[in-house]
Computed example of a mutant assay.
Amino acid sequence: MTYKKLAKNLETICAINITPFYKDTKEIDWGGLEENIQFLLKHGTEVIVPNGNTGEFYALTLEEAKQQTRNVVDIVQGRATVVAGVGYSVNTAIELGKDAQEAGADCVMIHQPIHPYVTTDGAISYFKKIIEALDIPSIIYFKDPHLSDDVIKELAPLEKFIGIKYAINDLPRFKKVIREVPEEHNLAWICGTAEKWAPFFYNAGAKGFTSGIINIYPESSFAMLNGLREGDHEMVWKVWEETLDYENLRAKYNNGNNVVVIKESMAEIGMNSGVTREPVNPLNEEDKKEVEEILESWNLLNKVND
Rank of each mutant, 00 (worst) to 15 (best):
I131C: 06
K165Y: 02
D287N: 10
Y202Q: 01
G97M: 07
I216A: 01
D106G: 03
T119F: 06
V239P: 01
W237R: 04
E64G: 13
Y88G: 00
I94V: 14
E247A: 00
L6W: 07
K143A: 03
E296R: 15
E230C: 08
R250H: 00
R79Q: 15
N203T: 03
L60N: 08
L155K: 10
V47T: 06
K238S: 14
N281E: 12
I75F: 08
G231H: 14
I130H: 10
Y246H: 05
V118C: 02
Y22E: 13
V239F: 00
D24Q: 14
V177S: 03
L6S: 09
E102V: 14
E230A: 15
Q68G: 05
L283D: 01
L301A: 07
K66W: 06
R250V: 02
N284W: 11
R277E: 10
T19M: 06
T193L: 10
K263A: 08
M271Q: 06
F201L: 05
L171K: 05
I152V: 11
R229M: 10
G55I: 08
L6Q: 14
F200M: 06
L158N: 03
N255G: 01
L295T: 08
W298N: 09
T210Q: 00
I269D: 05
T19W: 01
E241A: 15
L10P: 05
A198V: 03
T81N: 05
T92H: 03
